[in-house]
Measured scan of single mutants.
Amino acid sequence: RGFLEKAAVKKMAKAIMADPNKADEVYKKWADKGYTLTQMSNFLKSKTAGKYDRVYNGYVIHLD
């Protein structure tokens, strides 16, 4: 289950990176699912340092 969630989160993160207008909708879905910042950090780990920082930081702001 965790692997599928991670894959889904990364897919949506890539969608945000391609079209930032989708961010609020995606952040709301993640918040509704109760994803914590720790979970998001783990889901968005990448071999490329900083690749998903913008998405993660946007989610931090959304939760605030």
Rank of each mutant, 00 (worst) to 15 (best):
Thr48Lys: 10
Gln39Met: 11
Ala15Thr: 11
Val9Cys: 05
Lys47Met: 07
Ile16Leu: 07
Phe43Val: 05
Thr36Pro: 01
Val60Pro: 01
Ser46Pro: 05
Ala49Lys: 12
Lys51His: 06
Glu5Leu: 13
Arg1Pro: 15
Lys11Ile: 10
Ser46Asn: 05
Ala15Met: 11
Thr36Trp: 03
Ser41Trp: 14
Leu4Asn: 08
Thr36Phe: 02
Gly2Ser: 08
Tyr52Asp: 02
Lys14Leu: 10
Tyr52Pro: 02
Leu63Phe: 04
Met12Phe: 05
Asp24Cys: 14
Gly58His: 03
Gly34Met: 04
Lys45Glu: 11
Lys45Ala: 10
Val9Ala: 04
Asn42His: 12
Val55Ser: 00
Met12Tyr: 06
Leu37Trp: 02
Lys10Trp: 09
Ala31Cys: 13
Phe43Arg: 02
Val60Tyr: 06
Ile16Phe: 01
Met12Ile: 05
Ile61Glu: 12
Glu25Asp: 12
Pro20Met: 05
Asp24Gly: 11
Ala7Asn: 11
Thr48Asp: 12
Lys51Tyr: 14
Gly34Cys: 08
Glu5Val: 10
Tyr59Thr: 01
Gly2Leu: 14
Gly34Asp: 03
Lys47Phe: 09
Lys47Asp: 12
Leu37Pro: 11
Gly34Pro: 08
Val60Phe: 05
Tyr59Leu: 00
Tyr27Ser: 00
Val26Cys: 07
Val55Met: 02
Ala23Gly: 06
Ala8Phe: 08
Lys14Met: 09
Leu4Cys: 15
Ile61Leu: 14
Lys6Leu: 09
Ala13Arg: 02
Lys29Gln: 12
Thr36Ser: 09
Ala18Gly: 05
Met40Lys: 00
Asp53Gln: 10
Lys14Asn: 11
Asn21Ser: 14
Tyr52Thr: 01
Asp64Asn: 14
Ala15Pro: 01
Gln39Trp: 04
Val26Asp: 01
Ala31Ile: 04
Gly2Glu: 15
Val9Arg: 01
Asp19Cys: 15
Asp64Met: 13
Asp19Asn: 09
Gly34Ile: 03
Val26Leu: 04
Thr48His: 08
Leu63Trp: 05
Lys11Leu: 13
Gly50Leu: 05
Pro20Val: 06
Gly50Glu: 06
Gly50Trp: 04
Gln39Thr: 08
Leu44Gly: 00
Ala49Cys: 13
Arg1Gly: 15
Thr38Met: 13
Lys51Ile: 10
Leu4Gln: 12
Leu4Ala: 09
Tyr27Pro: 00
Tyr56Arg: 02
Ala49Pro: 15
Asn57Ile: 14
Tyr27Phe: 08
Lys14Ser: 09
Leu44Ala: 00
Gly50Asp: 07
Val9Ile: 12
Ala13Asp: 00
Lys11Glu: 06
Tyr27Gly: 00
Ser46Gly: 08
Leu63Val: 05
Asp53Phe: 05
Arg54Glu: 13
Asp64Ala: 14
Gly58Phe: 03
Gln39His: 07
Ile16Ala: 08
Asp24Tyr: 11
Trp30Ala: 00
Glu25Trp: 07
Tyr52Ile: 02
Val26Ile: 12
Ala8Leu: 12
Val26Lys: 02
Lys6Arg: 14
Gln39Ala: 08
Leu63Thr: 04
Ile61Phe: 07
Val60Ser: 08
Ala23Pro: 01
Lys11Met: 10
Ala23Phe: 02
Gly58Ala: 04
Thr38Lys: 13
Asn57His: 10
Lys10His: 06
Pro20Lys: 04
Ala13Gly: 02
Glu5Asp: 09
Lys22Gly: 06
Asn21His: 11
Tyr52Cys: 03
Tyr27Thr: 01
Met17Thr: 04
Lys10Cys: 13
Val55Trp: 01
Ile61Pro: 01
Ala15Gln: 14
Tyr27Arg: 00
Lys10Val: 14
Arg1Thr: 15
Ala13Cys: 05
Arg54Ala: 12
Asp24Thr: 12
Lys29Ala: 11
Asp19Trp: 06
Lys51Met: 11
Phe3Gly: 14
Lys45Pro: 03
Arg1Cys: 15
Val60Lys: 13
Ile16Met: 05
Lys10Ile: 15
Asn21Tyr: 12
Ser41Ile: 07
Asp32Val: 09
Met17Gly: 02
Thr48Tyr: 10
Ala49Ser: 11
Asp53Ala: 08
Lys10Leu: 15
Arg54Tyr: 12
Phe43Trp: 13
Arg54Trp: 12
Ala8Met: 13
Lys29Asp: 07
Val55Thr: 01
Leu44Thr: 00
Leu63Ala: 03
Val55Phe: 02
Val55Arg: 00
Val60Thr: 06
Asn57Asp: 14
Leu37His: 04
Asp24Lys: 15
Asp32Gly: 07
Lys10Glu: 08
Asn21Arg: 12
Ala31Phe: 10
Thr38Ala: 13
Leu44Ile: 03
Met17Lys: 04
Ala18Lys: 13
